[in-house]
Design a protein around this nucleic acid. Structure first.
Length: 699
RNA sequence: GGCGAGGUAGCUCAGUUGGUAAGAGCGCAGGAUUCAUAACCCUGAGGUCAUGGGUUCAACUCCCAUCCUCGCUACCA
């Protein structure tokens, strides 16, 4: 292991087509920030790099939907995201954007170098082309009916309704998202990176040399490597993005996943024009990527392969990816608006009351480090009221109150001759806590680290309880007699409070500063080397009047949040609240008008299911035998996750009888069953309201 | 279906390379106390460590099978 002299910490570049939610924070920005603040407190040179990822097709789609330009979209979200992070005290050294010229230049040069050294394969493929707009359509530009759930605005790579990943060929009634015309296939050329060439090296580098990576990360990488890597297109047909720096590459841009991680490099160049090489090209720099688990393949496989191919760059030493944070038992869904948006949270729990620290605390205490975790508002309330208020805030408050009552508002002296075992025990605990916090942070165990910080406050409460200085000062005579004992107790509690500020600083920076304010010390006290000391506050120094660090959160506030979440979650057509203008409701005319002849081409028949069984090795498919009166058809239908085979025998259905046969999992499907989808995405049969003889015509 | 990660007290989660009677926080019950935001402090109840086999002197920890959850992937006309 090389000795590291400096740290380069990156947090995944958020995509500038929507605001950030608390799952993003818990997934990578909060752990990254805690880690960076800890490093800074230890005076270890560190740069914390982030910015918005502003290219890619979804942004252009969104621009089309809102009838504006991609630039307007990314400008809006860049600002919103940046402000959200600022409110949460995420302390980036730079928060840049991939639309900046320096990034285009860096990414293009990177691509050119790989091209010049022959790392790319050129391939021609057939892609959908919009003749009206004269442009190739990336998968995302093709919109059509999802073959799985019937959602009419599925994209060519994925249906956002049911989550199925698709290819454009699978869409029913594919249309161009640009012009709504029917696209045609046309040949196009792209540059592919043969990742399989890096496979032996990646196996060695990850599987042999980085066994210390988190189990979820290591396992995911191994899975990818064992599956075998393939060439991957690193360019796209688009006008929005980094232009491919080659002749005859009009209308080609870098694949967003090629250019985005390079954004880390260009942001560093922007921040440190004269010394960025030191951070990216010297082996004694430790590069750490904080990401969510959806980004593992890009940060552990593709980007390292790119860096390796380019040469001259260091590789990530660790990629501590977190899992996902669910909300109230359900997965976050931006399209269903099942999410807690940071900019909305901060409106209800403003930074004046250090609402950001409450959220930081709860998210860290419940951080999805090893598996998906659940965020509930009840838990948020409990942790605030029972931990921040009752344990931490209470300890600091009672310490300051006692100090004012029993020590005249000044830091009392410590009378060494009266030091007892209990004092020593507290001191030992403080030293151990420091060590444990350090160890946990260095191993990316943030929740354990935070727990240890809270244990310091817990220990303080116990100590105070054992010493019970209020008993020693029952009356004036008693207080006079016991003043030295009282002094010692308060002295210890005050020094412990100062230590708490140091420990809390990486996790709850605003609270740490607030404690400094109450103790009338400068922020420099927060430097980590001061932790464990009992000389942080000078004897005789007068401190400020106590102020509560945290307030209780009432049931009504929690109710309000839950209602807000659920009302948002039930909206069929979700609206993200940054936009003041409501999106246009378009679902009533999602498909172009057709005439009767078009409709008449479809032969719809009533049928009765007379047999059903699960298709082998397919999760979603049922093989049905449908009686159409004069014949029986075998139809394969993607409904296995909605109906058990035995429960649908005898079910009447509507069948598209003249659909061209198609082989699925080796079975020829002779038709298609019509299904209706409800708000939860569950499929229901379309059937006549009375029993009709099989074969009956539908029109 | 393939692969990966998980299934540990009511809840949220820890458990390093197998070895004293299985842990924490919250919640719950009882007690003590009043400096403190009815906060704090003490004590206690609670788990066949998903299930069934196996290896071992010894397994939550290793191996095999099964079930459940999440993710990636295939299937969706």
């Amino acid at each position: 292991m090389p000795e590291f002299k400096r740290y380069l910490v990156t947090a995944a570049l958020p995509y500038a087509n929507g605001p950030v939610h608390i799952g993003h924070l818990a997934g990578c920005y909060l752990p990254a920030d805690i880690y960076v603040r800890y490093l800074r407190a230890r005076k270890i040179p560190v740069q914390f790099i982030c910015g918005t990822d502003e290219h890619g097709v979804p942004i252009t789609i969104k621009a089309l939907q809102e009838n504006t330009s991609p630039q307007a979209i990314v400008d809006r979200y860049h600002q919103l995201i940046r402000d959200s992070f600022a409110a949460m005290d995420i302390s980036f050294d730079i928060f840049s954007r991939t639309s900046k010229p320096i990034h285009h230049e860096t990414a293009a040069a990177f691509f050119k170098k790989l091209y010049d050294e022959g790392y790319f394969e050129e391939k021609e493929t057939e892609q959908f082309y919009d003749e009206e707009k004269q442009i190739f359509l990336a998968d995302r530009y093709i919109v059509g009916t999802c073959p799985v759930c019937g959602y009419e605005k599925a994209y060519g790579d994925q249906c956002e309704k049911c989550g199925s990943s698709l290819s454009p060929d699978e869409l029913i009634n594919p249309r161009s998202a640009l012009s709504d015309t029917i696209p045609v296939k046309r040949k196009t050329k792209h540059w592919y990176m043969p990742l399989q060439r890096f496979e032996p090296w990646l196996r060695q580098w990850i599987l042999e040399q980085h066994r210390e990576w988190k189990a979820n990360v290591y396992g995911q990488c191994k899975s990818w490597l064992d599956h075998g890597l393939q060439s991957r297109a690193m360019t796209r047909d688009s006008h929005w993005g980094v232009k491919v720096p080659l002749p005859n590459a009009e209308g080609k841009v870098l694949y967003v996943w090629f250019d985005a991680p390079i954004g880390y490099i260009s942001a560093t160049r922007e921040l440190l024009p004269d010394s960025w090489q030191q951070w990216w090209q010297q082996e004694d720099t430790r590069l750490i990527h904080f990401i969510g688990k959806d980004n593992i393949v890009f940060h552990c496989i593709i980007f390292p392969a790119m860096l390796k191919a380019h040469g001259g760059y260091i590789l990530p030493d660790n990629v501590p990816a977190n899992e996902f944070l669910n909300i109230e038992g359900q997965k976050v869904s931006t399209s269903r608006n099942w999410a807690i948006w940071v900019h909305e949270y901060i409106r209800d729990f403003p930074i004046e009351q250090r609402g950001q620290d409450v959220l930081r605390y709860v998210l860290c205490a419940n951080m999805p480090e090893t598996k998906d975790n659940d965020f509930t508002w009840k838990d948020f309330q409990d942790r605030n009221n029972n931990e921040l208020v009752a344990i931490l805030g209470n300890f600091v408050n009672r310490t300051l109150v006692l100090m004012h009552k029993l020590c005249k508002g000044k830091v009392p002296p410590f009378h060494e001759q009266l030091k007892d075992e209990r004092d020593e025990q507290l001191y030992v605990h403080l030293q151990q806590a420091k060590q444990k916090i350090e160890q946990n942070l260095e191993q990316f165990h943030f929740r354990d680290a935070l727990m240890e910080v809270m244990n310091v406050a817990r220990e303080g409460n116990k100590y105070l309880q054992d010493k019970a200085p209020w008993l020693l000062a029952r009356d004036e005579a008693a207080q006079q007699a016991n003043q030295q004992l009282i002094d010692n107790t308060i002295f210890m509690c005050l020094q412990l409070t100062a230590n708490l500020a140091i420990f809390l600083n990486p996790f709850l920076p605003a609270t740490a500063r607030k404690i400094c304010y109450l103790l009338k010390v400068v922020d420099r006290m927060l430097e980590w080397e001061n932790a464990g000391s009992l000389k942080l506050l000078s004897v005789g120094y007068s401190l400020r009047a106590p102020e509560l660090l945290f307030r209780k959160i009432e049931d009504a506030e929690i109710e309000k949040q839950i209602q807000k979440l659920q009302s948002g979650g039930q909206q069929l057509q979700p609206k993200i609240s940054v936009s003041s203008q409501p999106q246009k409701e378009a679902s009533s005319s999602a498909k172009p008008t057709i005439n009767f002849e078009d409709f008449d081409k479809i032969d719809l028949r009533v049928g009765t299911i007379i047999a059903a069984e699960k298709v082998q090795k397919a999760d979603k498919l049922l093989q049905l035998t449908v009686d159409l009166g004069n014949e029986q058809r075998t139809i394969v239908s993607g409904i296995a996750q909605h109906y058990a085979p035995e429960q649908i025998i005898g079910q009447q259905v509507v069948v598209v009888a003249n659909l061209a046969p198609r082989k699925l999992k080796g079975i020829t499907s002779q038709g298609m069953i019509l299904m209706a989808e409800d708000q939860q995405g569950k499929l229901h049969f379309i059937a006549p309201s009375n029993i009709i003889s099989p074969g009956g015509k539908v029109s």
